[in-house]
């Protein structure tokens, strides 16, 4: 087990380093002049020179890259003297536009993104598992065909279109929900909940459809197993067989996918957050694109890469505890 974990962590670190290198290469080698880009609007030649000096852009690529990687672990200081800026330990870069370390900006917004992700995950897991199980045990019936049609439709509707439709119908026309506005949970839990209902639904629907299909396919496979026939034969009530004997083994592949999907979302649901104006990591990334604030975009890319890699490792570990066969193969 420790050896298995070690190999996973090593390969995960390798992937992360590559993600880092790739992103860095794109930003600081391919883009025309990073200093000008970072400088953005209201730019003066002095400001460009200052940024160039601060970032050490006069140095060769590898030196800059090593500095960046070292900065992630040890922190770094941009510039010298009075204009020096400190960037503490997990230094993912420094946004000169907002005069803030990228890591601090991310940490501020991470709880909001996590709230969106967790709520959506609860919704899509419930809907996906229930829908998939129902669809599988009623294979070929009207219910099955209806659910299948619904999943295809849900998969095809773009997030932002659904968001606009929901906002128009539920908020403007029917007025069932208030206009979304940022309210902390402690101030007004009800308002807080109502604000997140639409984002959760919009984010969850595509995943719910995918998970329904996955669960359906897996449960159908399991239902053909001998032990399921035995369970039916010994007279267990069908609902019990479906839940205990069919759903449980079908859950393992779902766990795998879920780990990756959820980890990816923790790093911000770009489109959903943008459409609903939720101030999370995703919206921050989208705003940074508009402002060309490249250190932030790069920081978020790295964070997302990190979360996906960690998610994969966690899934692998959880997998080995659920399913002993994997341990042998590894």
């Amino acid at each position: 087990m420790p050896r298995f974990l070690l190999s996973r962590v090593t390969s995960g670190l390798g992937v992360l380093l590559l993600v880092c290198l790739f992103t860095y290469l794109v930003f600081f080698a391919l883009s025309p002049d990073p200093a000008v880009q970072i400088c953005g609007k209201n730019c003066t030649p002095e400001l460009i020179d200052q940024i160039r000096g601060n970032l050490g852009l006069d140095q060769p690529f590898w030196t800059q890259f090593v500095q960046f990687v070292v900065g992630i672990f040890a922190g770094r200081t941009y510039g010298e003297g009075v204009s020096a800026v400190d960037c503490a330990a997990p230094c993912l870069g420094y946004s000169f536009q907002s005069s803030q370390a990228v890591w601090d900006m991310i940490v501020q917004r991470l709880p909001v993104s996590a709230t969106v992700a967790v709520g959506a995950a609860v919704l899509w897991l419930l809907a996906g598992l229930a829908g998939g199980l129902l669809s599988a045990v009623k294979e070929g019936t009207f219910a099955d065909r209806f659910i299948t049609g619904l999943t295809l439709t849900s998969m095809s509707i773009p997030n932002y279109v659904l968001a606009l439709v929901l906002q128009y119908v539920l908020v403007v026309k029917l007025q069932w929900l208030p206009f979304p506005q940022a309210v902390p949970f402690a101030d007004d839990p009800v308002q807080w909940f109502l604000n997140f209902v639409m984002p959760w639904m919009v984010l969850a629907i595509g995943y719910a459809a995918a998970y329904t299909r996955l669960t359906r396919a897996n449960v159908l496979d399991v239902l053909r197993e001998n032990y399921v026939r035995t369970a039916f034969a010994k007279g267990l009530p069908p609902s019990l067989v479906w839940r205990r004997h069919a759903l449980r083994p079908a859950l393992t592949p779902v766990v795998t996918i879920f780990g990756m999907d959820f980890a990816g979302l923790l790093g911000g649901a770009l489109i959903t957050e943008t459409v609903f104006g939720i101030n999370g990591v995703g919206k921050m990334a989208a705003d940074s694109i508009a402002r060309n604030d490249q250190p932030v975009i790069m920081g978020v890319t790295l964070l997302a890469g990190f979360l996906v890699v960690v998610g994969n490792i966690v899934v692998d570990v959880v997998y080995t505890t659920i399913d002993p066969r994997v341990r042998v193969n590894a």
Binding site: L152, M155, S156, I157, P158, N159, L203, I205, G206, Y207, A209, A210, R213, L214, T215, R216, A217, N218, D221, P253, I257, M260, D261, A263, G264, L265, A269, L270, I271, T272, G282, A304, V308
Partner: peptide, 21 residues
């Protein structure tokens, strides 16, 4: 499964699940 791990749900290819076996 998810082709692009994000909230861009339309980017997910339809998977029957059994294809990975």
């Amino acid at each position: 499964m998810t082709s692009f791990p994000t909230d861009l749900t339309t980017a997910q290819p339809v998977e029957a699940g059994t294809d990975d076996t």
